[in-house]
Design a protein around this nucleic acid. Structure first.
Lengths: 234, 234
DNA sequence: ATTTGGTTCAACCATACGGTTGAACTCAAA
DNA sequence: TTTGAGTTCAACCGTATGGTTGAACCAAAT
């Protein structure tokens, strides 16, 4: 039981993560993973039995550690939608800046094998302790319900909450999924792109709220938000 | 020289298109393509020499016929940005409803092999006849320039045009790329999803303009737009 | 010093897969 | 009817790739 992070198992997983994220399941070669880990190919099978099992472990881990926590934000009934959006978008960008290939990887494998991934997703998002087992997903107001509420109050535009959700997700993912085309089209260096992503975090929040909120409510919100930011940063 | 569409070559291309779009290059099997086409595997090599060449033909065709025309809209200097956006988003949705797997397919292969795809993209978007060869891309006002112009006039919010472009693209692609998760999350039947996409077309335009335009200009625009629509439909 | 269980490896195996061969069929031109 | 180019196929080949074997190494326990 040596240092956990430098154990062979962890080294393999890290190498496999890289290769699978670059090449996808079918594009990845066991030999390539072994090379990247600097070990014998046998080791992969010794620790993870088969390519499929190694892949499943990686995918499961990535999904549970990185995506599931974000999904949970949008189901937290304690949190106001506006806070849900802010935390989701920030969380998404902060996570994906560290793992830029993850969105495309997850989406691609998802599309190739929806059935399997859906099972996995259910496992990965455990029913939170405060929720009654009888009402697994609907315990309180959700993202959608809160938006409808805001519409009734006259704060929000009369939009389909699902359309907003898809737009928000799309704005989040696209900067990572299409990085190369964006970077090429606008002739950005890697540093410039990182800066672009850093700015984008707040931009996506702004875009989402411009879509969601009626203009006067948006202005009010923005003032309040700017003050909060100043307080937090000092 | 028999009927073009039912020629063996076309049958093969159609089958290959399906398999490649479902499985990606490395996931696709020549045998599977042959089976889908209902012919002997030999035929694939007879007509297209190798898997790589068959793939290249498909990819090039899909890109040139379906994506390039859309990209051209955003570079048309004769067209006002607002018109560019409307035509792009409509065109995108109308194309992708017919070829729902195309966005993820293109993006995934692009990410795996950016160098090659970029070459292809340059070939696919020919310099239009009216343009001087000396200024291949910058012959007149572009998407970006027009937006900056609109900001100066006080019609548009002071946003980074690149951020808007990425948001718009993301809103377009996401509905197709993440179809299964969206459909599952909102428990939609296939018909309901088609309806969702049909609505989405106008929604994305609306969202984009809400991000882009100052509220009063947006209201003015919307009135004008609604009238135009009535005129067109009658 | 010996055993034992976990770990590592080079070499090997079976199969899947991309690609090839050579023969046969079709059909139009001569 | 013959010829020949274009087309189709079953069977085959070579290699890449996922997976296995059996032996060696090493550290801790006896």
């Amino acid at each position: 039981m040596t240092n956990k992070d430098s154990s062979t198992e962890e080294i393999i997983k890290e190498a496999a993560r890289n290769v699978f994220q670059r090449q996808g399941f079918s594009g990845a070669r066991m030999q390539e993973i072994a090379d990247e880990a600097g070990i014998n190919k046998m080791m992969l099978h010794y620790y993870f039995r088969s390519k499929q099992q190694l892949f499943d472990v990686i995918f499961q881990e990535d999904y549970s550690n990185l995506m599931a926590p974000l999904a949970v934000i949008l189901r937290n009934p304690e949190l106001h939608v506006e806070q849900q959006i802010i935390r989701f978008v920030r969380g998404y960008h902060e996570t994906m800046v560290e793992h830029p290939r993850l969105p495309l990887f997850l989406i691609h494998e998802f599309a190739k094998n929806p059935h399997k991934v859906l099972e996995m997703a259910q496992k990965a998002i455990p029913v939170s302790k405060s929720e009654e087992p009888a009402h697994p997903q609907l315990s309180a107001t959700t993202f959608m319900d809160q938006i409808d509420e805001g519409i009734e109050k006259g704060h929000y535009n009369e939009i389909d909450a699902r359309q907003l959700a898809v737009s928000m997700l799309g704005m989040c993912t696209h900067a990572f999924i299409s990085r190369i085309s964006v970077q090429t089209a606008y002739e950005m260096s890697d540093e410039q792109y990182m800066k672009f992503l850093e700015e984008r975090k707040e931009q996506v929040i702004d875009h989402t709220f411009r879509i969601l909120m009626k203009p006067d409510y948006y202005v009010k919100w923005k003032k309040k938000y700017q003050k909060e930011k100043e307080n937090t940063s000092t």
